[in-house]
Amino acid sequence: MSSITANILNVVGILVFVVASAAMLTWVERRMLGIWQERYGPNRVGPFGILQVAADMIKLLMKEDWVPPFADRFVFVVAPTIAMFVVVAAYAVIPMAPGIGVIDLNIGLLFFLAMTSLSAYSVMFGAYASDNKYALLGGLRAAAQMLSYEVFLGLSLMGVVMLAGTFNLREIVLAQQEQWFVIPQFLAMLLFFIAGIAESHRTPFDLPEAEHELTAGFHTEYSGMKFGMFFIGEYVSVLLTASMMVVLFFGGWLGPVLPPLVWFLLKTSILVLLMILIRGALPRPRYDQLMAFGWKVMLPLAMINLVVTGVLVLV
């Protein structure tokens, strides 16, 4: 197998895998929420309702592709594309197993941070282009929230970088052969987890699209597949957050007996389920509480974590 074929297989395989599993996640999430609420969730289409995704997809594709006449048409169309693109692009640097991964950047972590920062644009563009008060409010909230939480998202990872001495994700995984970074960097793991949820604006940090206040927030005016892209983008970013945590804190593909890829997927799945559980359990905070929590609690903790880690590494 030539390296080009391997590369193409890697790229296409991962792309298809990521998008497909994100789509699958919509079903998983609904089933899991159902189970935790003593319901069944979607169980009618196909075995266990697994084809619900396909049904939804068909529905979304069959829907009228509606662009409101008052919208800024170009930006309106571009916004969901950005949303989808940046998260999928960020996934390129995730090392899933030895030999599996799109690209092995030596600044992989920074690339991840850059891409997640860009996703703020998709929300803001979508909100602006919609020319709708709910969308605008949602967009404003999203911008402020993502900006605030990105700060300690980055800072919390610096401890890991210090311990591993590299920005290369594959090397970070390999640096955990002795000990997963979750042990020395437990606080950083928590911070990253919280920030990750906030970045993908999922409950309890879904203020940009809080149904009870803002209809559907920034994507109020979206329908059909354009809405589908925002929707799937959110699940890709869930997957991305979980994968990053596995890579950074839980030893990536490392593990005994089972093949590396299975280890990676297993760890990722557990974290995804945890995120779904959090959605099913925790209420949404008030907006000011969200900001205060970010700036007054998370940021200082990230600083302290950085300083302590630095001191320990130096000593």
Binding site: E38, L277, A281, L282
Partner: peptide
């Protein structure tokens, strides 16, 4: 309280369905 909530919700996994 957060952890307890998570546990409470997770404990429904094997409860009887109401549907």
């Amino acid at each position: 309280s957060t952890l307890r909530t998570l546990w409470d919700v997770a404990s429904h996994t094997f409860a009887k369905r109401d549907t």
